[in-house]
């Protein structure tokens, strides 16, 4: 049973922001509610005030511009993104990734902004959006600020949001090359992955001109594998280049050693899945991406 609380339905960002400042750390933002309500129910989080962001108009846009990329309002639900013809056409990997998140019922409620603010180290969408160089817009007292998702997530976990600040939108630049998301779970749905990662690669005349490798669950936030990314740049896309990058990922990855799987097992799993995923970048046959 959730403890009694005050409920507010602001209609502007300024109102919401003031309420959050006024009530301090005991206020929680409500968007989809799919993380907030279970956390309150389990008494993992406490709150004396709920500030509903869904009563604020103008945070639901979903627009694509070929030179500018995709703009997604913070309140767009995961189901809306998954069904969007724009997403299917320009960011198919994002659509594939959303299918892994939670359940169909949860995806009908959960919002992209809320999902990113929960900031789970294994979060599917944070991982793929880091690989796609996404940026977020944050409402602050006295204006708004746009920063990379990479900066939005501090190294120690959580987000950069201070009290009263609200994530209002997500921007994804035009796709560079192609990207893959890979995840291994014991159950087929609604499970914490043992290993998950995203890779984005762009090739020009066979040489790798852009690389992103983002690994989940290997620290307090999804991590860019910077050494492996650098090792790929300027190299010919092929088995030897990929093998060097994989060795660097394994060296830098520190997955948990817990009841779900040992660290040694996760390292081995990671190596196999990285090899399979990289191999799909040298062939046009996307079917090889699955296993």
């Amino acid at each position: 049973m959730i403890d009694p609380l005050q409920y507010f339905a602001p209609t502007t960002l300024q109102q919401a922001s003031s309420l959050l400042v006024q009530w301090g750390p005991r206020a929680r933002m409500l968007s989809g509610g799919t993380a907030l309500l279970p956390a309150l129910e389990r008494a993992q989080w406490s709150a004396t005030a709920i500030v509903n962001l869904k009563t604020i108009p103008g945070l639901r846009e979903l627009e694509f511009d070929p030179s500018d990329g995709l703009h997604v309002g913070a309140l767009v639900t995961l189901a809306e993104l998954q069904r969007s013809p724009i997403v299917r056409a320009h960011y198919p990997v994002l659509q594939e990734t959303i299918a892994y998140v939670a359940t169909p019922q949860v995806r009908n409620l959960a919002t992209l902004g809320g999902n990113l603010c929960v900031a789970t180290p294994t979060a599917d969408l944070a991982i793929i959006l880091l690989a796609l160089d996404a940026r977020v817009t944050v409402h602050r007292v006295g204006g708004k600020d746009t920063l990379s998702l990479d900066r939005f997530y501090p190294t120690w976990g959580g987000t950069q949001l201070a009290q009263g600040e609200i994530l209002t939108g997500i921007s994804i630049p035009p796709p560079r090359g192609s990207a893959r998301y890979q995840r291994f779970m014991v159950r087929q749905a609604v499970d914490v992955p043992l290993v998950n990662f995203a890779i984005a690669l762009e090739q020009q005349e066979g040489q790798i001109s852009h690389a992103r490798i983002v690994l989940g669950g290997s620290g307090p936030r999804p991590l860019r594998m910077i050494r492996a990314e650098r090792a790929l740049l300027g190299q010919l896309a092929g088995r030897e280049t990929f093998a060097r990058a994989i060795d660097l990922v394994i060296a830098d990855a520190y997955p948990p050693d817990d009841l779900r799987a040992s660290r040694a097992y996760r390292h081995e799993l990671l190596r196999v899945l990285l090899r399979r995923t990289f191999s799909t970048f040298t062939t046009t046959d996307r079917a090889n991406a699955s296993f």
Partner: peptide
């Protein structure tokens, strides 16, 4: 069904 879409009723705050 909430506005025609399947959702978990336990995840919807009543005032919302």
């Amino acid at each position: 069904l909430l506005d025609g879409k399947a959702v978990n009723a336990c995840l919807v705050l009543a005032p919302d």
